[in-house]
Amino acid sequence: MSSTWMTTRAWLLMLPLLVVMVAVIGWPLVDTVGLSFTDAKLVGTGGNYVGFDNYTNMLSSSNFSRTLVTTTLFAVISVAAEMVIGVLAALLLNQQFHGRAILRALMILPWALPTVVNATLWRLIYNPEYGALNAALTQLNLIDAYRSWLGEPGTALVALIVADCWKNFPLVALIALAALQAVPRDITAASLVDGAGPFNRFRFVILPYLAGPLMVALVLRTIEAFKVFDIIWVMTRGGPANSTRTLSILVYQEAFSFQRAGSGASLALIVTLLVTVLAVAYAALVRKTAGSAA
C-alpha cells in the first residue's frame, strides 16, 4: 500500500469530523471576526464596516477596565482559595481514619452538582429574609440585623467567590489526593527519621510529587474562572451596580441585552485572546514543573 493512499485514507476518514468542526466552530469564529469589524445590531441587516472602532472603543471604555479588574479578582481569589482548601482537604482525607471512604465520596458532591443547582442553593443560603447565613451569624451574635449579601456591592463578589470555591475545591482535592498516592512511603519514613516536622515534610517530601498535578489543576481552574458566566448569571446577573460583572457577562450584555452584535463580537474575541495567552503561558509552566520531580 502506498503512503499517498494511507494519507488520503486518513484524510477521508477524518473528513466528517472536520466538516462538523468547521461548521460549528470554524465558521462561527470567522463570522464573529467579520462581525467585530461592523456596527451590526443583533437583529436586522449586516451593518457597516467600521474598522477597528469596536476594539478601540471597547478597550478604552471604563466598563471594560472595571470588568477586567472584577474578573481578575474573582479568578485569582477563588482559584487561590480553591487550591489551598483543596490541598488541605486532600491531606486530611489521605490520613487513616474510620469513615474516610464515605467522606471522600461526599466531598465530590458539590463538584458533581450542576452549577445552576449549586448557585440556587447558595442564593437560598444568602437570602436576605430567611437565608441560613443570616440566621447563623445572628445566632452567633456576629451581626445585629439580617443583610442582603448578594444585594450589596461590598459583599456580592465575596459571596460569589465563596460559592464558587465550594463548588470547585473538590476538583483540586481529587487531583491532589491522587497525587498523594504517588508519594513513596519510604521517603516519608526517611523524613520522619531525619526529624522533619509536618511543614518541612510537606515542603520537601509531598510538594515535589504534588506540584505537577496541582499545576494542571491551576491551569484548568484559572481558565475556567476567567471565563465564568453561569454561577454569576444565576446568582447576581452581574449586579448589584455591576459589582460582579465579569468579562463573559459583559459580552452577553453587550451582544444580547444592548443588542450590539458587532461590539459584543469584538469583546468576545478580546476575551478569547486573553484566555489563549493565559493558556499558553501556563502550558509552558506545566512543562517546566513536570520536569522538576523525578
Binding site: P184, D186, I187, A189, A190, S191, F204, V205, L207, P208, Y209, S292, A293, A294
Partner: peptide, 9 residues
C-alpha cells in the same frame, strides 16, 4: 532504604 528514598528536589 531499598528504594534509596532520597528527597527528589
Amino acid at each position: 532504604f531499598q528504594s534509596y528514598a532520597l528527597y527528589p528536589n
